[in-house]
Structure formats: C-alpha cells, structure tokens
C-alpha cells in the first residue's frame, strides 16, 4: 500500500497509541506459532530421532525391568520387594543418599563460592581436583576411603580412640556418598555464581542491607534453582552408587546393606525376579523424588525471575 496514493489519512486504520511495530511483532508471533521458522530446520527429523533414541536407550530397559519384576505374579513381587531386609536397605539407601546430598549442597556451595570468588595459589589445582570423584573408578574410591576411615586407617584409628566408628556402618556409607556426589553441586553452582557477579550484593549493601539480609534475600534466591539441580544430581548419583560403598559399608544385612548391593546378591543367587522387584521399587522412588525436586526447581526458577521474558 502506498501512503502517497491514498489521499485519506491512514491514522484511523489502527488504534491510537499502538505503534506499528507492536502490530508487526504480534503478527510475527502468530506466524511463528502456525509454522516454526528457524535458521536450523529439521524439527520433525530431530524430534523423531530423539524420541527413538530415548526409547531405545532409556525407556525400553525400564519397561523390561518392570515387566520382569511382575513376571511371576504380584505375590512374589511383593515378597521380594517388601521383605524386611529390602525395606531396611531402601531406608538406608535413600536416607544416606539424602543426607549425603544435603551435606554436599552445603559444602559444595562453599567450595564453588571459594573457587569463583577468590584468587589464591593452587586455585586451579583445587578446581581440577573437584572432578576427581567423577574420574576415579568407584572401586578405587571405595578402597581409598576404607584405607583412611577403617578402624586401623589413617583417620579411623584416631576416631577409634574417641569410640567413633567411621567405617563398616551407615556413617561410612554417607562418607562414600559425600565423596562421589561433591562435583555435582560444585559444577552446577560454579557458573551461576560467576554469572551472578558482585553487582547484586553491592547494590544490596548500598541500600543498607547487612550480610545476612544480602545473602538470604538476594544471593540465595538467585542460586536456588542451580542449587536444587546440584542437590538432585548428587542425590541421584548417591542412590545408585555401588562400587565405592561396598568396601566401606561392611554390608551387614539390616544394618549397612544398601539396596543396590541387595540387587547384586539376588542376582548372584539367580533370583532375577527378586532383583528386578527391588530395582523397580528403587526406580519408582527415585523417579518420584526427582520429580519433587524438579517441581521445586521450577518453582524456584519462577521465583528467581529468570525466565520472565516479555
């Protein structure tokens, strides 16, 4: 349409106060919804492949475990899944994993904070060491921890003088789970702390806020989503951990026997249904717990105002 050809004023064509760009933008959003236009095409193909891959690698094995566990009927499932020994193992596995993840959330934050905020000799070395629990074969970690914390170990012998036993009991399990879970919290928090920068806390200080208020009202809410992610990852890893725990746990049934070990024991006795029944309980419980953490995280992200784009 040419503005020159039309002698009538064209201002009446649109509501007063609504700039043309807004109209154009709105129209564009509409067209986006109708048919996505992106620089990299291939939505159909990539989604199809992603779903196929996910099904093959993740969903299929899970379905197999569920199918297997119920293959000899509900009674034998319940007998294997909810035996007293199994329930004790669940309690221990989830309890120790939650406790370890909580400890990691606290001290992992401290490590991440120190690594991001301060420059000191050996910082890069410390930064590299954080990944060690990732890289170390879990059995090696288990042997190393046992060497230190066993009643005749480097630290364990001193603890023994105080009548503290750090290995071959649930405390040992928590120590192992803290060890393997640390990097998850540190590595998820590090970039977020770096991105946050000093400006928010400086702003809070100029507005008269003391350290406690600055931390609780400004820094903590900004870090909470990443914190929960780190917690969830550390927890998930801890629940499934096997290698490092069995060396230090002592593995006494009803006391320090973790659920993954119970599965292995069932397998060694060729009790596949029993093993998969315990696996199903763990799988379901883990899924529910992670779902809760994810919901919490979504809530925290909403609260942090990050995803509130226009």
């Amino acid at each position: 349409m040419s503005a020159f050809a039309d002698p009538r004023p064209s201002l009446q064509l649109q509501p007063v106060g609504l700039p043309t760009t807004a109209v154009a933008l709105h129209a564009r959003t509409m067209s986006v919804r109708a048919r996505p236009h992106t620089v990299l095409p291939g939505f159909g193909l990539s989604l199809g492949y992603a779903v196929f891959y996910f099904s093959l690698i993740v969903l299929l094995p899970i379905v197999a475990v569920y199918a297997r566990s119920f293959s000899e009927g509900i009674e034998s499932f319940a007998a294997a899944a909810f035996s007293e020994r199994a329930i004790n193992a669940y309690r221990l596995s989830f309890g120790a994993a939650l406790l370890a993840a909580a400890i990691n959330a606290l001290f992992g934050f401290l490590v991440a904070w120190v690594l991001v905020r301060y420059r000191f000799p050996g910082r890069r070395l410390l930064d590299a060491f954080v990944d060690l629990p990732f890289a170390l074969p879990t059995a090696v970690a288990g042997i190393a921890l046992t060497t230190i914390y066993a009643p005749n170990g480097w630290l364990g012998q001193h603890a023994a003088l105080l009548d503290w036993q750090l290995a071959y009991n649930p405390i040992g399990i928590v120590i192992a789970l803290v060890f393997i879970g640390l990097p998850f919290v540190v590595r998820t928090l590090q970039p977020v702390i770096a991105e946050l920068g000093h400006a928010p806390e400086e702003a809070a200080a100029t507005l008269g806020a003391g350290r406690w208020r600055t931390f609780t009202r400004v820094i903590f809410p900004a870090l909470l989503p990443a914190w929960l992610t780190g917690f969830a990852l550390a927890f998930a890893r801890a629940v499934g951990e096997y290698g490092s725990v069995i060396f230090i746990a002592g593995n006494l049934p009803f006391v320090s026997e973790i659920a993954p070990l119970l599965i292995v024991i069932q397998l060694e006795q060729y009790n596949y249904v029993g093993a998969s029944a315990i696996a199903v309980v763990m799988l379901t419980a883990s899924f529910l717990l992670l779902l809760v953490v994810n919901l919490l995280q979504a809530w925290a992200t909403r609260r942090s105002g990050v995803d509130r784009a226009r």
Partner: peptide, 16 residues
Amino acid sequence: RRAGFVFQNYALFRNM
C-alpha cells in the same frame, strides 16, 4: 554511608 548508587547494568534483584 547512605549513598544511593545506580549501577551500570542496573543490578536490579531479578527475583523481586
């Protein structure tokens, strides 16, 4: 000090 400070990138609290 009670010095009102306006930061370069505003440094608004995103969660508020």
